[in-house]
Design a protein around this nucleic acid. Structure first.
Length: 464
RNA sequence: GUCCCCAUCGUCUAGCCGGCCCAGGACAGCGGCCUUUCACGCCGUCAACGGCGGUUCAAAUCCGCCUGGGGACGCCA
């Protein structure tokens, strides 16, 4: 079986995580079955569509690693094609011209509502045999009775009575096709076999199936994935903070973490939580998709991100962290030093932003270093400073100021005085980093160098 | 209002062609271990089948109703 899927966003905003997830599912299905994944821009809404958003969506797709086959299709370039198919429907008697105005149709809907019925067009022009004319649109002549039934990949069998549907407009009075018409024509022309899209499209599907049938096209398989809800269970919106893919990118998330998280939100493979892209391609066959809506949990996303940050080769991690470090205003940083910092701090950061921020105390001079007041009070008291004073000459004697010798010097002092590391290390840490955090002390001191390390210790001593 | 869809720990989920489930994993929380800090890691712990009926020897698993949630009802996409 050959499989062709597609992702068809409308450029009225950035790529949203909901859209990203359907794109990923579509991409995975195509890759799994060694089929094709296509891309289409649904830009028929001239008012809201912007080139800026098309560019942004493209950039996000690339960032996520979603590649597609063939040219990108733009609906605005296919107006004549849609027109041809509408004419075909008109000619075959599957569609008719309608002269009802928007006001008249609104009135019909109100009337139906009043009767407790579904608001719908009542078929006023259906048998009038009208021809083209100013202000006239074309409507599909829907069957009067029967059911539209389809087997959804995620929801199972869905059945709707055609009585629920009305004769929908397929060509507006300005000559442009409506969404449902354009989608059907495009999906058919692009050879789409599996349509994966958001839950909010289920009610469009029976309408589209009617168009497929009227046109004599083969109906593809549909898969409607549930929406992603905000942490509070409400529909995801601007109020919930970051929700566009680029925002997560700016927050220092890794694409593989986002992909892993999004895929796992609504799809599962037993108890497995971590999946490489290769594994996903191998495992994702369109089954085991959860039919119910899921809430977005940024904590789990960050946990995954931390996981991937630990696994990345340092060179790669450093390369990805560089722009974030630059945003912190650290100034020039050699690859080597950046990589050292990354290995030193990667285990305690969950995002690239956090990682870059954690470098701060290491990239200041002793003069610029600020001590955390609470830490000063607790660790840099008389006793702590006394240790530092005695430690100073020990470190001064270290010729090769690298982790091992530094550690030896520290050890010699601790053991020579019959102390415990617990008594000495905390004040030293306070002096070196300014707060009770950071990485392995000797590593940090080696990174700072002898001069800076000693200057920090002297500065701490001077606090008294 | 009408139609469609959904319903397992706080969250994501496994299980759902009935018994192996007094429900498993993960995140978060809590407790502990490790420890030259903080993390990481490891160990442990808390915690759920929305309600009511039915079918059955047996139901989280099948059926019905109810409740709750979501979506749709455009000459938007």
């Amino acid at each position: 079986m050959s499989v062709t899927t597609r992702f068809a966003p409308s450029p009225t905003g950035h790529l949203h995580i909901g859209g990203a997830r359907t794109a990923i599912f579509s991409w995975l299905l195509a890759r799994h079955f060694k089929g094709k994944f296509r891309f289409r821009i649904e830009d028929t809404d001239l008012q809201r569509s912007k080139q800026e958003y098309t560019d942004s969506i493209l950039a996000s797709m690339q960032w996520l690693g979603l590649t597609w086959e063939g040219e990108t299709t733009y609906q605005t370039k296919r107006m004549d094609v849609y027109s041809k198919y509408v004419d075909q429907l008109l000619a075959s008697g599957h569609a008719y011209w309608c002269s009802c105005t928007a006001e008249e149709v609104d009135a019909m809907r109100e009337r139906a509502k009043g009767l407790g019925l579904k608001p719908r067009y009542d078929g006023h022009c259906r048998e009038l045999g009208l021809g083209p004319g100013e202000g006239r649109c074309v409507r599909l002549k829907c069957p009067l009775q029967g059911k539209v039934v389809f087997d959804d990949m995620v929801k199972g069998r869905i059945s709707i009575d055609v009585a629920e549907l009305d004769d929908m407009v397929i060509r507006r009075s300005d000559g442009t096709p409506t969404y449902n018409m354009a989608v059907v024509v495009d999906d058919h022309d692009m050879g789409i076999t599996h349509v994966i899209r958001g839950d909010d499209h289920v009610s469009n599907t029976p309408r589209q199936i009617l168009i497929y049938q009227a046109l004599g096209f083969e109906v593809p398989t549909f898969g409607h994935v549930p929406m992603i809800l905000g942490p509070d269970g409400a529909k995801l919106s601007k109020r919930h903070g970051a929700r566009a893919v680029i925002e997560y990118q700016k927050d220092g998330l890794l694409p593989q973490a986002l992909v892993n998280y999004l895929v796992r939100l609504g799809w599962s493979h037993g108890d497995q939580e971590i999946f490489s892209l290769e594994e996903l391609v191998e495992l994702f066959d369109g089954t085991h998709l959860n039919p119910s809506a899921a809430r977005f949990d940024s904590r789990k996303l960050e946990w995954l991100n931390g996981h991937y940050m630990k696994k990345l080769p340092v060179e790669e991690l450093a390369r990805l962290t560089r722009p974030f470090a630059e945003d912190c205003g650290y100034g020039a940083l050699s690859d080597e030093r950046l990589q050292t910092l990354c290995t030193l701090f990667r285990d305690r950061a969950r995002t690239l932003v956090e990682l870059a921020a954690s470098f701060a105390p290491m990239l200041k001079t002793a003069d610029e270093l600020e001590f955390d007041p609470a830490c000063v009070e607790k660790q840099l008291n008389a006793e702590g400073r006394a240790h530092l004073e005695k430690l100073l000459p020990c470190f001064e004697q270290v010729v090769d100021f690298s982790p091992e010798p530094i550690n030896e010097a520290l050890k010699a002092y601790v053991e020579g005085q019959g102390l415990k590391f617990k008594q000495v290390a905390p004040p030293l840490r306070a002096a070196i980093v300014g707060y009770m955090g950071g990485s392995h002390l000797p590593d940090l001191m080696a990174f700072l160098g002898k001069e800076d390390s000693l200057a920090r210790i002297r500065k701490a001593i001077a606090l008294g």
